[in-house]
C-alpha cells in the first residue's frame, strides 16, 4: 500500500468507527447524570468505613487496591524493560569516547555551565520540592494526591539537580543501584502489606490497622503505609528510567565538561 491509498483507506474506516461511536454515545446517560450505584455507594461509605476524606485514594488503595498493585507492577516492568532495551550492546561497551568528544568540540558544541542565577534558583527549589512531595504522599488519604503524584514530585527533585548542571551530584543521589533497590523495595512493601489481612483470615489487602480519627494524618488504616510504599516505588522508578536514558544517551557528551 502506498501512502496515499493507505491514508484514504484509513480515513474511510476511521469515519465508519467514528459513526458507530457517535451513535453509541447518543445512548449514553446525559452529561453529568451518573446512573450506577457503585460510585454513590463508595461516596457514602468511604468516610464511615475507612475514616478518610479522599474517596479517590480509598478506591485506589483499598476498594480496588489490587488494581493498583497491578499498575505499580506495570511501572516496575516498564522500568526493567527500559533497562533491558537500553542496555549497552556487548559489542559497543568499549566505544571510543574520545572520538565523540572531539567530534563535539569540532562542531562547537561545547556549552558553558548554566549561569549562577539558574543554579541557585534551581537548587533552591529542590528542598521545597522534596518537602512538598513528602506532604503529598503523607496526606494522600486526606487531600487530592497520594503515592503516585507525590512520588513523581519527589522524583522531580533529583531531576532538577541534573538540570541545574550538577551531573555529579545527580549521579550520587540517583545511584543506579540505590534507585533500583528503592523501587523493588517499595513494591515488595506494597505486596507484603497485603499479606497480614490474608493471614488473619480475611482476604488479601484487607485492612488490619486501627482506623483512627477522620481527617487526622494517622488515619485510614493500611492506606497510608501502602501510599508511602507506592511513593517510594514511583519516585525511584522514574529516576531510574531517566538515569538509564542519561547514561545511554548523553554520557559521552557530558564527560568532556565534567
Amino acid at each position: 500500500m502506498n501512502r496515499r491509498v493507505r491514508r484514504w483507506f484509513f480515513l474511510i474506516c476511521a469515519c465508519a468507527i467514528f459513526g458507530l461511536f457517535v451513535s453509541a454515545v447518543r445512548q449514553m446517560p446525559t452529561f453529568g447524570h451518573y446512573r450506577g450505584p457503585y460510585g454513590d455507594i463508595l461516596n457514602r461509605e468511604t468516610v464511615y468505613e475507612r475514616h478518610i476524606t479522599d474517596v479517590v485514594t480509598a478506591v485506589n488503595f483499598d476498594w480496588r487496591g489490587i488494581d493498583t498493585l497491578g499498575e505499580e507492577s506495570i511501572l516496575f516492568l516498564s522500568v526493567i524493560g527500559t533497562l533491558v532495551l537500553l542496555r549497552k550492546p556487548s559489542s559497543e561497551v568499549n566505544d571510543s569516547h574520545d572520538e565523540n568528544d572531539t567530534a563535539d568540540k569540532r562542531k562547537g558544541r561545547e556549552i558553558p555551565l548554566p549561569s549562577a542565577a539558574t543554579r541557585v534558583a534551581t537548587l533552591g527549589l529542590v528542598g521545597p520540592l522534596v518537602v512538598f512531595g513528602l506532604y503529598i504522599v503523607a496526606h494522600g488519604h486526606l487531600t487530592p494526591g497520594g503515592g503516585f503524584q507525590g512520588g513523581v514530585i519527589l522524583a522531580t527533585a533529583p531531576l532538577l539537580v541534573y538540570l541545574a548542571g550538577d551531573l555529579k551530584s545527580f549521579k550520587r543521589i540517583a545511584n543506579h543501584e540505590t534507585v533500583q533497590i528503592g523501587e523493588a523495595l517499595g513494591l515488595l512493601g506494597f505486596l507484603i502489606l497485603g499479606l497480614p489481612g490474608m493471614i488473619r483470615g480475611g482476604a488479601y489487602l484487607r485492612n488490619v490497622l486501627p482506623l483512627g480519627t477522620s481527617g487526622h494524618v494517622f488515619s485510614g488504616g493500611m492506606i497510608a503505609p501502602i501510599n508511602v510504599c507506592t511513593g517510594v516505588a514511583v519516585s525511584a522508578g522514574l529516576v531510574a528510567v531517566t538515569y538509564v536514558f542519561l547514561e545511554h544517551t548523553l554520557e559521552t557528551r557530558l564527560r568532556g565538561r565534567r
Binding site: 479522599d54 487530592p144 503524584q149
Partner: peptide, 13 residues
C-alpha cells in the same frame, strides 16, 4: 486527583 497526576507528570517528567 487525576488533575494532580497530569500536572506532576506533564510538568517535568
Amino acid at each position: 486527583d487525576v488533575a494532580l497526576s497530569q500536572i506532576t507528570i506533564g510538568a517535568v517528567a
